[in-house]
């Protein structure tokens, strides 16, 4: 019997193992997420405690032998006073706990609100069906960087996110770093966060936004400041010119075929902005908003049959023969 209890206990702890990792609100890696995690734990603990107390009281009442019931119309003053006291005590305790929790969450909110008040970096994230447009704002316009799906931030520094959308409501949620916040068309929401340590944190759209909502993820990559600066400077360069004859053919095809209608590659005639910016696409770790890892094969697979990988996504199946497909892949692979 005892062994069963132990096994049950062990089994119930097992799911908690899933709480750590690169996409978990219970494994905070920054002050905003930390504040929220602390709240979660505290709320859960307190509520569990209250629940246990209530259960104990209930069980005690059930177990206690029933006293003979007197005349219900005759009130026993002492007993009534006693009962009233208990009710009011419980009421008071409830009020105190609720007010306490309210205050806790209020102060947690205040803490969240000031995290990014001195943020040196502002990143504008625009939700699209089904990818993220990421723009690094800068007071010097020619140092504004637009990229997609992969967000690099300096570790240990507060970062301000401005969240908006162009089509439907999305929600930006990187559980290890911050709470979720909606991206609303025509409206700007502000989310501040800080990653304490370098690392890769997965984010996911947290508001159902259509067919490929599940495959709308992002990666926040926190790096030490010098590495981040180097990355930013690197990304500001125009796209690498095609290095091989095959890549050159791919470059020409890219500009001749439907690719050019939606995508941008800096330094070329391709200036589309309704699909991810591909200027440095091969430097990213994933493809199609975190759906595939970046590799030549995955690039080819995604171009050849996006509808097989993300059915309903807005990237169409384009009629390309083997040579054309490989040429475009060779070109894109060189865009580091």
């Amino acid at each position: 019997m005892r062994r069963i209890w132990v096994m049950c206990g062990a089994a119930s702890i097992l799911p908690l193992a899933g709480c750590s990792g690169w996409q978990s609100a219970l494994d905070p890696k920054g002050p905003a997420a930390g504040e929220l995690a602390w709240l979660i734990w505290f709320f859960t603990a307190l509520c569990t405690l209250v629940w246990l107390l209530v259960m104990i009281a209930l069980i005690m009442t059930l177990i206690r032998r029933a006293r003979p019931i007197g005349d219900p119309l005759v009130l026993d003053a002492t007993s009534e006073r006693h009962k009233t006291r208990i009710v009011f005590a419980a009421l008071g305790a409830t009020a105190v706990i609720l007010i306490g929790l309210t205050l806790l969450s209020f102060f947690a909110n205040r803490t969240l609100a000031v995290i990014g008040s001195d943020a040196a970096l502002t990143i504008r994230v625009t939700g699209h069906q089904w990818w993220w447009e990421v723009r690094y704002e800068n007071s010097q316009p020619n140092r504004i960087l637009t990229t997609a799906n992969e967000i690099h931030i300096p570790a240990g520094e507060p970062v301000r996110f401005i969240l908006t959308s162009t089509d439907v409501i999305h929600s930006f949620w990187v559980p290890n770093l911050a709470g979720k916040l909606d991206l609303i068309p025509g409206h700007e929401n502000v989310l501040d966060l800080k990653a304490d340590k370098p690392g890769v944190y997965r984010g996911q759209c947290a508001e159902f936004c259509g067919a490929q909502h599940a495959n709308m993820s992002t990666f926040v990559i926190a790096e030490p400041r010098p590495i981040f600066d180097a990355w930013l400077n690197d990304q500001l360069r125009p796209a690498a010119p095609p290095a091989s004859p095959e890549a050159k053919a791919g470059h020409d095809l890219f500009l001749k075929r439907p690719c050019v209608m939606c995508h941008k590659i800096g330094g070329t005639m391709a200036g589309g902005s309704v699909a991810p910016d591909l200027t440095h696409v091969a430097s990213r770790q994933t493809l199609a908003a975190g759906t595939l890892t970046m590799s030549r094969g995955n690039l080819a697979a995604w171009i050849a049959d996006p509808q097989g990988i993300k059915p309903g996504a807005y990237m169409p199946v384009v009629d390309l023969n083997g040579d054309e497909l490989n040429a475009i892949v060779a070109y894109l692979e060189g865009l580091r």
Binding site: P141, N142, R143, T146, P238, G267
Partner: peptide, 12 residues
Amino acid sequence: GVTSWPPDAWKI
């Protein structure tokens, strides 16, 4: 004419 624009935007 370059620095008062986002990258590449001045070309269009």
